[in-house]
Simulated scan of single mutants.
Amino acid sequence: MTRTSARLERRVRRDFGAAADDLVRLLQDAPYAERVQAASVIGAGGDAERVRQALRLADLDWRDVLMNTQATAVDLATSGWEARLDLALGEGAPVQLWRPVGPEELGLVEESGWREWPPRPADQPRLITVLRREDAHALGQQGSGPDPGTGWVTRCEVEAGFMSRYAVTQVGGRRIRGYRIPAVDLAELNANLVGRIQRVEAVRG
Protein backbone atom coordinates (compact mmCIF):
# COMPACT_ATOMS: atom_id res chain seq x y z
CA MET A 1 0.00 0.00 0.00
CA THR A 2 1.18 3.50 -0.79
CA ARG A 3 0.17 6.44 1.35
CA THR A 4 -1.34 9.85 1.30
CA SER A 5 0.74 12.70 2.67
CA ALA A 6 0.72 13.36 6.40
CA ARG A 7 -0.59 16.89 5.88
CA LEU A 8 -3.47 15.73 3.68
CA GLU A 9 -4.36 13.03 6.18
CA ARG A 10 -4.59 15.73 8.86
CA ARG A 11 -7.00 17.66 6.64
CA VAL A 12 -9.13 14.56 6.06
CA ARG A 13 -9.36 13.87 9.79
CA ARG A 14 -10.31 17.48 10.44
CA ASP A 15 -13.00 17.63 7.75
CA PHE A 16 -14.62 14.18 7.79
CA GLY A 17 -14.87 13.00 11.40
CA ALA A 18 -16.09 9.42 11.66
CA ALA A 19 -15.65 8.83 7.92
CA ALA A 20 -11.97 9.80 8.01
CA ASP A 21 -10.50 6.32 8.55
CA ASP A 22 -12.28 4.91 5.48
CA LEU A 23 -11.30 7.89 3.35
CA VAL A 24 -7.66 7.72 4.41
CA ARG A 25 -7.56 4.06 3.37
CA LEU A 26 -9.20 4.95 0.06
CA LEU A 27 -6.67 7.70 -0.60
CA GLN A 28 -3.77 5.45 0.38
CA ASP A 29 -4.80 3.01 -2.33
CA ALA A 30 -5.28 5.74 -4.94
CA PRO A 31 -2.50 5.99 -7.54
CA TYR A 32 -2.57 9.78 -7.68
CA ALA A 33 -0.11 12.43 -6.56
CA GLU A 34 -0.95 14.62 -3.58
CA ARG A 35 -2.30 17.40 -5.82
CA VAL A 36 -5.06 15.18 -7.24
CA GLN A 37 -5.82 13.56 -3.88
CA ALA A 38 -6.10 17.01 -2.31
CA ALA A 39 -8.42 18.25 -5.05
CA SER A 40 -10.69 15.27 -4.32
CA VAL A 41 -10.75 16.06 -0.61
CA ILE A 42 -10.92 19.85 -0.60
CA GLY A 43 -13.52 20.00 -3.34
CA ALA A 44 -15.79 17.63 -1.40
CA GLY A 45 -16.65 20.17 1.29
CA GLY A 46 -16.77 17.53 4.02
CA ASP A 47 -18.99 15.13 2.01
CA ALA A 48 -17.35 11.69 1.98
CA GLU A 49 -19.36 10.49 -1.01
CA ARG A 50 -18.09 13.40 -3.07
CA VAL A 51 -14.51 12.27 -2.36
CA ARG A 52 -15.38 8.83 -3.69
CA GLN A 53 -17.00 10.37 -6.77
CA ALA A 54 -13.94 12.53 -7.40
CA LEU A 55 -11.61 9.55 -7.23
CA ARG A 56 -13.83 7.64 -9.67
CA LEU A 57 -13.65 10.66 -11.98
CA ALA A 58 -9.85 10.66 -11.59
CA ASP A 59 -9.80 7.07 -12.83
CA LEU A 60 -11.27 8.38 -16.10
CA ASP A 61 -9.17 11.57 -16.27
CA TRP A 62 -7.45 13.02 -13.21
CA ARG A 63 -7.26 16.44 -14.88
CA ASP A 64 -11.02 16.78 -14.57
CA VAL A 65 -10.70 16.57 -10.78
CA LEU A 66 -8.27 19.49 -10.85
CA MET A 67 -10.58 21.47 -13.14
CA ASN A 68 -13.36 21.12 -10.58
CA THR A 69 -11.31 23.35 -8.27
CA GLN A 70 -10.73 26.09 -10.84
CA ALA A 71 -11.88 29.57 -9.77
CA THR A 72 -12.15 28.46 -6.14
CA ALA A 73 -9.99 29.65 -3.25
CA VAL A 74 -7.94 26.45 -3.60
CA ASP A 75 -7.55 26.37 -7.39
CA LEU A 76 -5.30 23.40 -8.11
CA ALA A 77 -5.78 23.51 -11.88
CA THR A 78 -3.81 26.64 -12.78
CA SER A 79 -0.33 28.03 -12.23
CA GLY A 80 0.54 28.91 -8.66
CA TRP A 81 -1.35 25.91 -7.33
CA GLU A 82 1.58 24.88 -5.11
CA ALA A 83 1.26 28.00 -2.94
CA ARG A 84 -2.51 27.62 -2.67
CA LEU A 85 -2.17 23.98 -1.67
CA ASP A 86 0.40 24.90 0.97
CA LEU A 87 -2.05 27.44 2.40
CA ALA A 88 -4.82 24.83 2.48
CA LEU A 89 -2.78 21.98 3.97
CA GLY A 90 0.15 23.61 5.76
CA GLU A 91 3.84 22.81 5.59
CA GLY A 92 5.26 19.43 4.65
CA ALA A 93 4.62 19.10 0.92
CA PRO A 94 5.91 15.78 -0.46
CA VAL A 95 9.24 15.94 -2.24
CA GLN A 96 8.98 15.35 -5.98
CA LEU A 97 11.70 13.11 -7.44
CA TRP A 98 12.57 12.21 -11.02
CA ARG A 99 14.59 9.23 -12.24
CA PRO A 100 15.61 7.87 -15.66
CA VAL A 101 15.14 4.10 -15.85
CA GLY A 102 15.76 1.38 -18.39
CA PRO A 103 13.39 -1.39 -19.47
CA GLU A 104 14.47 -3.88 -16.79
CA GLU A 105 13.96 -1.50 -13.88
CA LEU A 106 10.71 -0.18 -15.33
CA GLY A 107 9.43 -3.74 -15.64
CA LEU A 108 10.15 -4.38 -11.97
CA VAL A 109 8.41 -1.16 -10.95
CA GLU A 110 5.39 -2.15 -13.03
CA GLU A 111 5.34 -5.63 -11.46
CA SER A 112 5.02 -3.96 -8.06
CA GLY A 113 1.90 -2.14 -9.23
CA TRP A 114 3.94 1.08 -9.50
CA ARG A 115 4.26 1.05 -5.69
CA GLU A 116 7.94 0.22 -5.15
CA TRP A 117 11.44 0.87 -6.36
CA PRO A 118 13.12 -2.53 -6.83
CA PRO A 119 16.19 -3.67 -4.87
CA ARG A 120 19.45 -2.16 -6.09
CA PRO A 121 21.99 -4.26 -8.01
CA ALA A 122 25.21 -4.93 -6.14
CA ASP A 123 27.10 -2.41 -8.29
CA GLN A 124 24.51 0.33 -7.62
CA PRO A 125 24.42 0.80 -3.82
CA ARG A 126 22.26 3.93 -4.02
CA LEU A 127 19.05 4.99 -5.74
CA ILE A 128 19.87 8.20 -7.59
CA THR A 129 17.04 10.66 -8.18
CA VAL A 130 17.06 14.23 -9.48
CA LEU A 131 14.99 17.32 -8.72
CA ARG A 132 13.95 18.26 -12.24
CA ARG A 133 12.26 16.42 -15.08
CA GLU A 134 14.58 17.92 -17.69
CA ASP A 135 17.62 16.66 -15.79
CA ALA A 136 16.24 13.13 -15.70
CA HIS A 137 15.59 13.37 -19.42
CA ALA A 138 19.11 14.64 -20.08
CA LEU A 139 20.68 11.85 -18.02
CA GLY A 140 18.62 9.31 -19.92
CA GLN A 141 19.74 10.73 -23.25
CA GLN A 142 23.38 10.68 -22.18
CA GLY A 143 23.13 7.04 -21.22
CA SER A 144 23.84 8.03 -17.61
CA GLY A 145 20.81 6.16 -16.36
CA PRO A 146 21.02 2.52 -15.30
CA ASP A 147 20.44 1.22 -18.88
CA PRO A 148 21.88 3.19 -21.81
CA GLY A 149 19.64 3.47 -24.87
CA THR A 150 15.86 3.55 -24.85
CA GLY A 151 14.45 4.32 -21.43
CA TRP A 152 11.89 6.34 -19.56
CA VAL A 153 11.64 9.25 -17.19
CA THR A 154 9.74 8.36 -14.02
CA ARG A 155 8.36 10.55 -11.26
CA CYS A 156 7.35 9.95 -7.66
CA GLU A 157 6.47 11.89 -4.53
CA VAL A 158 7.94 11.01 -1.13
CA GLU A 159 6.84 12.13 2.31
CA ALA A 160 8.76 15.25 3.32
CA GLY A 161 9.59 13.96 6.80
CA PHE A 162 11.41 10.95 5.38
CA MET A 163 13.33 12.97 2.80
CA SER A 164 14.48 15.49 5.40
CA ARG A 165 17.19 13.07 6.53
CA TYR A 166 19.00 13.39 3.18
CA ALA A 167 20.92 16.30 1.74
CA VAL A 168 20.48 17.53 -1.83
CA THR A 169 23.76 16.90 -3.62
CA GLN A 170 25.35 16.99 -7.05
CA VAL A 171 24.45 13.79 -8.89
CA GLY A 172 25.43 14.49 -12.50
CA GLY A 173 27.54 17.21 -14.08
CA ARG A 174 27.83 20.57 -12.40
CA ARG A 175 24.21 21.58 -12.42
CA ILE A 176 22.25 18.35 -11.88
CA ARG A 177 21.21 18.00 -8.27
CA GLY A 178 19.23 15.38 -6.45
CA TYR A 179 19.43 12.67 -3.81
CA ARG A 180 21.56 9.56 -3.31
CA ILE A 181 19.40 7.24 -1.23
CA PRO A 182 21.25 4.21 0.21
CA ALA A 183 19.95 0.81 -0.85
CA VAL A 184 19.48 -0.15 2.81
CA ASP A 185 16.84 2.61 3.09
CA LEU A 186 14.89 1.50 0.03
CA ALA A 187 12.11 -0.34 1.88
CA GLU A 188 11.51 2.70 4.05
CA LEU A 189 11.54 4.95 0.99
CA ASN A 190 8.89 2.77 -0.64
CA ALA A 191 6.79 2.94 2.53
CA ASN A 192 6.88 6.73 2.29
CA LEU A 193 5.78 7.06 -1.33
CA VAL A 194 2.76 9.34 -1.77
CA GLY A 195 0.61 7.90 -4.53
CA ARG A 196 2.48 5.72 -7.02
CA ILE A 197 5.51 5.90 -9.26
CA GLN A 198 4.59 7.31 -12.64
CA ARG A 199 6.06 6.71 -16.09
CA VAL A 200 6.21 10.17 -17.65
CA GLU A 201 7.98 10.01 -21.02
CA ALA A 202 10.19 7.88 -23.21
CA VAL A 203 13.84 8.80 -23.72
CA ARG A 204 16.08 7.68 -26.54
CA GLY A 205 19.83 7.94 -26.12
Rank of each mutant, 00 (worst) to 15 (best):
D15W: 07
I42Q: 00
R56K: 10
A30C: 06
I197K: 00
L106T: 08
L186C: 12
D147G: 12
E104K: 09
E157K: 02
A6Q: 10
R3C: 02
A33Y: 09
V168M: 13
V36W: 00
V168P: 08
E201S: 11
L27R: 00
R10P: 00
D147C: 11
A54E: 00
E9L: 03
W117K: 05
R14K: 10
N192I: 14
V158P: 04
G205N: 12
V101I: 14
E188C: 13
V184Y: 11
E104C: 04
S144N: 12
A73I: 10
R155E: 10
Y32M: 04
G178Y: 03
H137L: 15
L139W: 09
S79C: 06
F16V: 05
S112K: 04
Q170I: 07
R99M: 10
G195E: 05
G145L: 02
Q28H: 14
C156K: 13
Q170S: 11
G80E: 09
G149E: 14
G107P: 09
R25W: 11
G45K: 06
R133D: 14
Y179A: 07
Q142Y: 10
A30V: 08
R63Y: 11
L66T: 00
A48W: 03
A33D: 07
I128N: 00
A88M: 09
A38D: 05
R14A: 13
W62Q: 08
V41K: 01
R132D: 04
Q53D: 08
Y166F: 15
F162W: 07
R120D: 00
N68H: 07
Q53H: 05
D15L: 13
L193A: 11
A202S: 14
G102A: 10
P94W: 01
E110K: 07
S5N: 01
P146R: 10
A48N: 03
G145H: 00
T2Y: 01
S112C: 04
C156H: 09
D22E: 14
R10T: 12
A73F: 10
L60C: 06
R13K: 07
V168D: 09
Q96N: 09
G45A: 01
W152V: 08
G205E: 07
E134M: 11
R177L: 14
L189G: 02
D185W: 03
D86I: 12
L55E: 07
N190Q: 13
V184R: 13
T129N: 11
P118T: 06
T4V: 09
N190D: 13
G107L: 12
L127D: 03
Q170F: 06
G151Q: 08
Q124R: 13
L27D: 06
